[in-house]
Design a protein around this nucleic acid. Structure first.
Lengths: 152, 152
DNA sequence: TTTTTAGTTCTGAAAACGAAGAACTAAAGA
DNA sequence: TCTTTAGTTCTTCGTTTTCAGAACTAAAAA
């Protein structure tokens, strides 16, 4: 069980809501908030379950979701069967990059739409092309930006 | 009623799924796909409703959602009470910019978390700071990139 | 004035989602 | 071997989402 100040509890909810708006379910949002805001570096399954008043299943599922998203990790200690979960803050750069690169799928879709359009709708086809070009430019430049930060 | 080729129908579903994965509901996704893929520049309410086999309410709501998101627009013709809906492809640049700027809210949250952490958890606090700095850098540079495209 | 057109708004029902509780499993301890 | 620990998986249930159908509205036409 983790002892939290009122302020910390408030921040967990506030940050939780922000993460919900980004598409994460309520329980995983709260778990990730707790791991980000708590002053303990590592929390156990039961610390999390008790502190957030979640069921075992909700806790287990939330942790698996967050691990799949690479937002948290866990370590083990020899002679101790418990897992110690912690917030990963350093995956952000690669996460940003992956999100940006995911736009490539969208671009492929745009290209497929473009080649299947009536060539006579010139104006619209041009806009589609422009959008595709912009997105390709955007991805390329953004990846450069991210990589530049690494070399500072 | 809009006549579509099999290929177009296939693309509408495919693009529809992509948009669902981006958080849009099924009906708005299909409507936006139709307006993007159809060779007609403008479609009426009933064109959309009939082509996609949607109810009037679903059609109406989907169109309102897409208008609120600025993904589509409509024009009117004098002496004609119908609305002619069309896909907006040119809002993308400003949409990208807005999405990027929305990260500022996330940064504010990170800062609030940072000032409320125990100052003794030095390593973690440093990572939080780094993340915040990276995000500020990312926003600034990305906005520059987007603006540069406009001046080509 | 009544009817038609072009939608909008209001239920209600089906489906999908999220979390609780209980049953289960695998490893360690007694 | 039996029990405890540390979680995982399965089932169920309450919400929320999404859409259809019906009732409604406002403007134009008849």
């Amino acid at each position: 069980m983790v002892q939290l100040t009122e302020k910390q509890k408030e921040l967990i909810e506030k940050f939780g809501v922000i993460q919900e708006q980004m598409g994460l379910a309520p329980a995983p949002s709260r778990v990730n908030s707790l791991l980000t805001i708590s002053d303990e570096n590592e929390l156990t399954f039961d610390d999390i379950r008790e502190t957030l008043n979640l069921s075992k299943s909700a806790t287990s599922n939330a942790l698996h979701v967050l691990i799949a998203l690479d937002r948290i990790g866990y370590k083990t200690k020899s002679g101790d069967r418990k897992k110690y979960f912690y917030s990963k803050l350093d995956q952000w750069k690669s996460k940003f990059k992956n999100d940006i690169l995911a736009l490539n799928g969208y671009i492929e879709m745009m290209k497929e739409i473009a080649i299947n359009r009536n060539p006579e709708t010139i104006e619209y086809n041009q806009k589609l092309d422009e959008l595709t070009n912009f997105m390709e430019y955007f991805i390329e430049e953004t990846v450069k930006i991210i990589d530049k930060w690494g070399h500072k």
